[in-house]
């Protein structure tokens, strides 16, 4: 009779444990990986593929090479959208960020009974749904019964009551931008406040000893130390502008003419109204690539700062 003897082999046991762990980890990762592939990477690849197709979303797609891109760049609507998002990004950086810095500094440096509720008030616009922000914007700029129009009528200021804030090609973009500035400045304020409050107290004490107080402290001490956060905010502003859709769409639907159209609005119209899935995908690709370029800029900035 042959008796089998089990010999304890530490190397084999270690290998088995390692293999089991690998299987376990793979099984745990699998659902999230599947989710990412299905809902993120596949749509990105599919968007790139569709951008080279003539597609209505129904029936057969036809390969047309770069024709969608060519048609976009000769389309007045797309060009207007591109110019608008870049203009929007530029002015967001030039107006919203200095404003945010100014408010963030005021709220952290001059702490009193008013400053605490003011923090909540400034941020409140940021947490409101875009639909409500747009409604409030319309409430202010509406041509016949808006606050500004009524104000003009009340004081007999015809120049104000005659202004068509949302219906004039000249004013519509800036009216929407004004609402956006009110709504979107909340986040940079909170972000900069957090960064200012994180700074060592010694900075402030040393500056005070040298007689650098108030706005001089803001300009000479704080600002140089906030260059990197401001750069990140600038990149976020730019990417946010490239994807801009909700506020201008709900306030003006991109009009009058193409006065407030953005790449997002153009994409929506091409895909859902005009049934031009290929062209809509091409806009999606352009937004993606532009966002990628700005993200790379962000990372290169990080390296530099490091």
């Amino acid at each position: 009779m042959v008796q089998s003897i089990q010999i304890f082999d530490p190397i084999k046991t270690k290998k088995t444990a390692k293999r089991n762990r690998a299987i376990f980890v793979s099984l745990c990762i699998f659902p999230s990986l599947l989710f990412l592939v299905m809902f993120m990477y596949y749509p990105i690849v599919e968007t790139f593929r569709l951008s080279f197709m003539k597609s209505s979303g129904l029936g057969q797609d036809r390969f047309i090479g770069l024709d969608n891109y060519r048609k976009l760049f000769v389309s007045e609507e797309f060009r207007a959208g591109l110019v608008h998002v870049l203009t929007w990004a530029f002015w967001s950086i030039v107006i919203q960020l200095p404003l945010a810095f100014f408010i963030a500094f005021s709220l952290t440096f001059y702490v009193n009974r008013v400053s605490k509720p003011m923090r909540a008030i400034y941020y409140m616009a940021n947490i409101m749904p875009s639909a409500i922000t747009a409604m409030l914007g319309k409430f202010v700029f509406s041509p016949n019964n808006g606050i500004l129009n009524n104000l003009g009528n009340q004081f007999g200021w015809d120049w104000l009551s005659n202004m068509d804030f949302l219906g004039s090609e000249r004013l519509a973009f800036w009216s929407v931008f004004a609402v956006a500035t009110w709504a979107y400045t909340g986040f940079p304020i909170i972000y900069l406040m957090a960064r200012i409050e994180q700074m060592p107290k010694e900075f402030k004490e040393a500056a005070e000893l040298d007689g650098v107080t108030g706005w001089k402290y803001a300009w000479y001490i704080l600002l140089p130390n906030l260059v990197y956060p401001l750069r990140i905010l600038a990149v976020l502003c730019t990417i946010g502008s490239l994807k801009l859709f909700d506020l201008p769409y709900m306030m003006t639907t991109g009009g009058p003419g193409h006065a407030t159209v953005t790449l997002g609005i153009s994409l929506y119209r091409q895909g859902f109204i005009n049934w031009q899935y290929g062209r809509a995908s091409a806009i999606g690709v352009i937004i993606f690539l532009l966002s990628l370029i700005f993200t790379i800029i962000q990372f290169s900035g990080k390296k530099e700062a490091a």
């Binding site: 209505s56 609507e77 009058p256 003419g257 119209r269 109204i273 005009n274 049934w275 031009q276």
Partner: peptide
């Protein structure tokens, strides 16, 4: 009209108001 041209049609007509 085919959907591909209906939204540009309405854009065109709105432009008469400019």
């Amino acid at each position: 009209l085919p959907p591909a041209v209906t939204s540009p049609l309405n854009d065109t007509i709105q432009s008469f108001f400019l």
